[in-house]
Design a binder for these strands. Structure first.
Length: 478
RNA sequence: GGCGGCGUAGCCAAGUGGUAAGGCAGCGGUCUGCAAAACCGCAAUGCCCCGGUUCGAAUCCGGGCGCCGCCUCCA
């Protein structure tokens, strides 16, 4: 392992070389969902982003410990419980289950550890006591607050000056706080709310403290990468830093990595706009690999605008890759002398995609390299069929695909079976084969009229035919 | 008001000092019974605008214009 990896660090606002605290090991914590509702595309993009970062770091030889939490007790869950009459823990369990299914449905691997807040309350209480002991937090009634102004580094992540932060904001004035900027580490329970016993009475953890507790429990007081969506920079991550460093006196996370947000048809995706797209709905409309390819065709730092048009383009791009993969596999019998040009292109792609990924996980750039190799592959197939170089190119494409979590189907499976379920007008593979047989006998009789009728009929039902020298093949259009 | 970011062909999108990747759509050609796929070629003389630095800028600096995110729960 001697790859030099650079990544953009929100904390320093610069690209920096990734230097792990422990040689060859990366410890990474990513904020997971608060489980009170179904996962949406924003969760999906964050999960895919860090999934690919994890896969790539592993690919180049790091041993990655990846922690992603579930926030399973929180005001939003309690509100949902009050609205529905369903106990809070049942709500959170339900959406944890859903989240796992949804992420699996878009090929996101499970992290090393997925801790839940409710299983770490004793550790949370310990951490709060340390913060109080160090003079950075105070009890007020049955709540505990973090004293923001006492922590000199407050604002260093989000580049805010605490002294300026009150002007024009909507910070709620709570007379239990010594300063309006202070935030809750522990919240006393109101009647009927879930609670745990604590030195300050019955209550529950505030938002933020759980991530400090669980990241430090599994990764140590100082670790390498802390990630999440850009929307978490303030206040969540700012507060995590303050709490954690107030407790330990040590640097918390070294590299702060934030993925850009999703827009839907050029609008912010939000509950108030009413345009939230859930993962479970999205996967009924588009193939999961097309969704991943869509995300990964954007540099993770930038926003990504999701729409029928942009998704259609991703599906078309994915299709081009699979068509090429299928062409390549169909050449197996057609062995020929090696193709030095393709051999060079394959080797150069192998180097380039890794280099490109080393430069801040630039999947979009690397995908560009992939399409250049795709052209070289097709050119070689046209001129000489199968060759050792083709084999090498496919192998390299496989490595890259595996890192991105795409191109994992058999080409026929993708082009036929999978798309048939989604796109075609109720036709079976057997019916298609039957019509192809009939058409081919018409073709051998030079009955072009009948042959074209059959092509037309299949076309109107979403099936596209291609007459190859080896025979007629088909795939689902669109 | 404060902080951060973005503006590259019809659309999507890389590229952050060395002379514009890639995908989709389009046009011309080869191939084909016709198609499709594939390949070849064409397509931004220029990267929002105006100045500046430099041998050289989409890339750096200054000033505009436009758009967006965060500052409240949020991936």
């Amino acid at each position: 392992m001697e790859k030099k990896i650079t990544l953009y660090n929100t904390l320093t606002q610069k690209s920096e070389e990734l230097v792990p605290r422990e040689k060859n090991k990366i410890k990474m914590y990513v904020c997971g969902p608060t489980v009170y509702d179904s996962a949406h595309l924003g969760h999906a993009r964050a999960a895919v982003t860090f999934d690919v970062i994890e896969r790539f770091l592993s690919h180049v030889g790091f041993e990655v410990t990846y922690v992603r939490n579930f926030t399973d007790i929180d005001d939003k869950i309690i509100n949902r419980a009050n609205e529905t009459g369903i106990p809070a823990h049942e709500i959170s369990e339900k959406y944890i289950e859903e989240y796992r299914e949804d992420m699996a449905s878009i090929g996101v691997k499970r992290p090393t550890v997925e801790p839940k807040v409710t299983e770490h309350v004793p550790e949370i209480i310990d951490l709060i006591e340390r913060i109080i002991g160090n003079g950075y937090a105070y009890q007020s009634g049955d709540d505990v607050f973090f004293a923001v102004k006492k922590f000199k580094g407050y604002g260093k992540l989000s580049k805010r000056d605490p002294d300026d932060m009150l002007a024009g904001t909507r910070i709620d004035i709570n007379e239990k706080k010594e300063d309006p900027l202070d935030f809750a580490l522990w919240k006393g329970a109101k009647p009927g709310e879930p609670f745990w016993e604590s030195p300050w009475g019955r209550g529950r953890p505030g938002w933020h403290i759980e991530c400090s507790t669980m990241s430090m429990k599994y990764l140590g007081p100082s670790f390498d990468i802390h990630g999440g969506g850009k929307d978490l920079i303030f206040p969540h991550h700012e507060n995590e830093i303050a709490q954690s460093e107030a407790a330990t006196g040590k640097e918390f996370a070294r590299y702060w990595v934030h993925n850009g947000l999703i827009q839907i048809n050029r609008e912010k995706m939000s509950k108030s706009v009413g345009n939230i797209l859930n993962v479970r709905d999205a996967v009924t409309m588009w193939n999961r690999e097309a969704i991943r390819l869509f995300f990964l065709s954007h540099q993770y730092l930038n926003p990504a605008d999701f729409s029928d048009t942009t998704m259609g383009e991703s599906e078309a791009a994915l299709e081009r890759l699979y068509i090429t993969l299928k062409r390549a596999k169909d050449q197996r019998k057609n062995k020929n002398a090696d193709d030095s040009e393709l051999a060079g292109a394959a080797a150069s792609f192998g180097r380039k995609w890794v280099e490109t990924m080393c430069d801040d996980f630039n999947t979009a750039d690397a995908i560009g390299n992939l399409f250049e190799l795709t052209r070289a592959v097709n050119r070689s197939i046209d001129s000489r069929g199968w060759s050792p170089a083709l084999e090498a190119a496919l192998k390299e494409i496989g490595h890259f695909g595996k890192t991105l979590g795409i191109l994992e189907y058999e080409p026929e499976e993708y082009l036929q079976t999978i798309k048939l379920q989604k796109k075609s007008a109720g036709i079976t593979e057997d019916e298609i084969e039957e019509l192809i047989k009939e058409r081919n006998s018409a073709r051998s009789d030079k009955n072009w009229k009948r042959a074209d009728e059959i092509r037309e009929e299949l076309s109107s039902r979403g099936i596209l035919l291609e007459d190859k020298s080896e025979g007629t093949i088909w795939r689902v259009k669109g």
